[in-house]
């Protein structure tokens, strides 16, 4: 495989035997060139270069590693590009298929023992290196999520505390008519559970809408089919669990304070 940066221009004159190339869809749209059209390809803008004929237009596999670079690509037959670059029989890399059962690590090790001017690496190792960027982004997202969960937890605690304290007079009346503190505590806890559950459902719906909007926006911005935001079952479980635990925990804390307070104080006459 050979990779190179090239300059392209629409061409209308004949005279040189064009070689076939395949254009990716975005490049074809940018040039307004489709199957059968002829283009001049050069190493430098204005260079003589090589005439090519568009043999096919293809949709490239979405690649998160290059999505923000917005690189445009076209594919040559290997000898044609090597001839254009003036580097015959020179490549950037080889892809090697091993016989079934052969370990890629062992094969790479064997090749590297005799390597001179090249390095062999298992595909998994290359994938690991090239996904480093996404691992960094993922760590960043996790750190941001911790701050966001911290803020949400405090907000939730505050709201549940206020919500329960709003029921001071109701709790006082119940205590005056003989309702046991434990019953009041359980009632307030159930109310907290209901509020937290309802909030979780609304939160999940909001998150689904936000994810859909994010995908719609960035897929349009980068002209790609990549998925930018997705709500996995694991994320869903974690979010609902955190929200229920925090909601019920905060409700229990506030309810405990309420039932331990003298009913006269709750009524405002203590």
């Amino acid at each position: 495989m050979v990779l190179a940066a090239l300059a392209l221009a629409r061409h209308s004159q004949a005279g040189q035997e064009p070689v076939p190339v395949a254009l990716e869809r975005r490049l074809a749209e940018r040039l307004g060139a489709w199957a059968g059209d002829t283009i001049r390809v050069a190493l430098e803008a204005g260079g003589a270069g090589q005439l090519v004929v568009v043999a096919a237009v293809y949709e490239p596999t979405p690649d998160p590693a290059s999505v923000t670079r917005r690189d445009l690509t076209l594919r040559f037959h290997l000898p044609d590009l090597a001839a254009l670059l003036g580097t015959p029989d020179r490549v950037n890399r080889f892809g090697i298929v091993l016989h079934p059962g052969v370990s890629p690590d062992d094969a790479a090790g064997d090749l590297n023992r005799v390597a001179f001017g090249f390095r062999a690496a298992p595909s998994a190792a290359i994938a690991g290196e090239s996904s480093q960027t996404f691992r960094v982004v993922s760590r960043f997202h996790s750190a941001i999520a911790i701050i966001a969960v911290g803020a949400s937890a405090i907000f939730l605690l505050c709201i549940m505390l206020l919500k329960v304290e709003e029921r001071r007079r109701d709790a006082a009346v119940m205590r005056f008519i003989g309702v046991r503190p434990r019953t009041i505590f359980v009632a307030l806890l159930l109310e907290a559970l209901l509020v937290a559950g309802l909030g979780s459902v609304i939160g999940v719906l909001l998150a689904a809408a936000a994810a859909a909007m994010t995908n719609w926006y960035y897929q349009g911005l980068f002209d790609t089919a990549l998925t930018f935001a997705s709500i996995t079952p694991g994320i869903l479980r974690f979010s609902i669990l955190v929200s229920l635990v925090l909601g019920v925990g905060a409700g229990a804390l506030a309810a405990r304070r309420l039932v331990r307070t003298n009913p006269h104080v709750l009524w405002g006459r203590g």
Partner: peptide, 11 residues
């Protein structure tokens, strides 16, 4: 209540 509010605003 005030402490929770301050903590929330802090974060």
């Amino acid at each position: 209540r005030s402490a929770l509010a301050v903590a929330g605003i802090t974060v």
